[in-house]
Design a protein around this nucleic acid. Structure first.
Lengths: 203, 203, 203, 203
DNA sequence: GATTAACCGAGACGGTACGTCACGTCTTTAA
DNA sequence: TTAAAGACGTGACGTACCGTCTCGGTTAATC
């Protein structure tokens, strides 16, 4: 996931294909070691407990090796997030509403487990100071919409939803309130809440 | 806004009115001086530029004086936010949809002006590590729902909306997507978007 | 020995006598704690083993406290050197030659004990990059000539030496070869060598 | 000057002439390229500016190539010093005093030009941690006595000086005070000072 | 009027993390 | 085998904050 010089999540920009690569290649397993250690530390003590010194030591790696692979601590954290947070697979029960319910139930469950995770809040804040991170994070978060978009698109293809369905809006109507409650007001996020959102969005 | 010892936003719990106070009373103008300096620094360099040392110097105040009035840097920032971000007044045009449109237009405008404010993200993150702050922030953010709740309640009272209207849900449907776009995906937040949200919420 | 802001060894320049001192005063015992820890570390592992992190920890002090009292690691080391290396007292046997012999014997002994001390070499190098240190070190080293100068002056006062005696030259003739052998050529520095130097210098 | 594996200044121990050479031969011009680059960097920024990474890049050479030819950075620096600092040729005017004056005048001039060179101090310090370097440096510095020893020997051979002249002592008496002033006290080193040293040494 | 107690500005305190740099070694591909 | 390139683990650097503590000095209410 880590890339030569660019920010996290950016595709490696053809690393000077011509001359091929000279010099000692990067340790192949270092990325994994670092990300694994990062996830451990995040689980143990949250973002606040993830200091670069400790991370390097835990991963058995020099700090420079980390900074060679990620432009910043936050780019690394974002990649760690990507690693853990496997996308929720799209159910396909032939019915948009059923699919969305299944999907949102999974989201609710994950939010519950994710309880008090400070990773996303940290990245949101950090992205205020770092444009590269901002766009990486936006990419990541828009990517997380893929499942729900797929469900909707299938519905449109099946004729279950009108061709003029505002997919963007439906996505925001379902995910927006989720995050709003989870990150901002602290109001409960449960299945009932999710179902009502789906009902409204499909109304 | 600042209180003797409790967290930001908590009502001062009757400061032991009984025994009255001995000793030198607190400087009356210090709260203002501190909040003003804080707002200046936030405007100049964001949360990252608001160090307690600089703040104390700017406000012409000792650091201890700040910590005597707010439990933490973040409690202070939250109060500063409260100070700037005056609540948007509830329009009253006798029509729920019109009122919501007027209101959301104001929100859109403020979000635009708020461009790249890192204050809210910072507080969200900090609240992950500080329960007192967490609840203060939740209070504040729920308080920001007052306007929209008032509009809806008036509609219900007028019979324009059914008595069984799920106010909580409508609030989340309107505000959730706003913050989701603003803080997370970075998608544009404009009047058109707001109007569609209102339409769906009232549908 | 440490001084508010100026380099090591500089006399504290009347610390703004007017306004007296405001703010919390510096910990009185910190200087000692730091210098003692520094001397321990120097004894254990030489200059190379004296890292600021370890020193701070050993002295039970924050790094900032050290940097508040000494402008640089080297200024601190110089003060540590001053602390250990008490001046050799001037003998007074009523005879210049006898006094010088006694004195140089003491120097020889100290050089022997000083075996492999890397402190002075380190300071000499560091002083190439730091003018303030350079002049502090010069002061210190010229101060170390005091004993020998006193012996000679007494001789002049007694009429044992001519009033036109070139004291500077005699000092350099005795100390120069000492350091030259000790630091540069590694040739042995013993009493016999010292005696011959004294004989030549007084010839 | 560089040698296969041994310390700087050691004679190359017959580089396994027998089996001839297998594999890629060493670049013949690398030594020169490295030393030249080293001298440039020393001139530009002193020892502190001579990092091995920069040096390798400047010389168009891999770091391993440098370490294959010199055991350490300091061994390389010593060789660089040897390269620049050509020995001062021995004058031969048939008179010891005149020869010494001519010689010391040249030394004074070089010291003046050498102003603030940090090379020698650096090597002196480094030699505290590295025995091999220590003896190489001692060799080098004793080698620098050759000129003055030659002048004295000629004087002895001519009968101008007694056969019992303590050559070692005379050398130390002349060079010791030079270095003492130059490296330690920072006192001026001029022709007058040198002449007085010669007078005393020959008295 | 004296005492007491909480406040005040200033700034030093012990900690902790940061990101950079240089070291000397190791690992590639190419000659 | 040696070359150039450059990644590697290590560890020190000096800075910047944090939130607390300690000064000498006010400023009331209480005694």
């Amino acid at each position: 996931m880590a890339v030569p010089i660019v920010a996290a999540g950016q595709a490696p920009p053809e690393p000077a294909r011509v001359g091929a690569k000279r010099g000692r290649p990067r340790r192949a397993d270092a990325d994994d070691a670092i990300l694994t250690a990062a996830l451990e530390l995040l689980a143990e003590a949250g973002v606040a407990g993830l200091s670069m010194d400790v991370l390097a030591q835990r991963a058995g790696v020099g700090k420079a090796t980390i900074y060679r692979r990620w432009v910043s601590k936050e780019a690394l954290i974002l990649d760690a997030l990507r690693t853990t947070n496997a996308p929720i697979p799209a159910p396909d029960e032939g019915n948009v509403r059923a699919d969305l319910i299944t999907y949102t139930d999974a989201v609710v469950e994950r939010f519950g487990a994710d309880r008090a995770s400070d990773v996303l809040p940290h990245l949101i804040e950090a992205s205020c100071y770092d444009d590269q991170l901002r766009s990486s994070l936006d990419d990541y978060l828009r990517g997380r919409q893929a499942t729900i978009r797929l469900i909707l698109q299938r519905g449109i293809d099946r004729g279950e939803l009108g061709a003029d369905t505002d997919v963007d809006l439906v996505v925001d109507l379902i995910l927006g309130p989720f995050f709003y409650r989870h990150l901002l007001t602290g109001a409960p996020v449960d299945r009932d809440f999710a179902h009502r959102l789906v009902d409204v969005a499909l109304r």
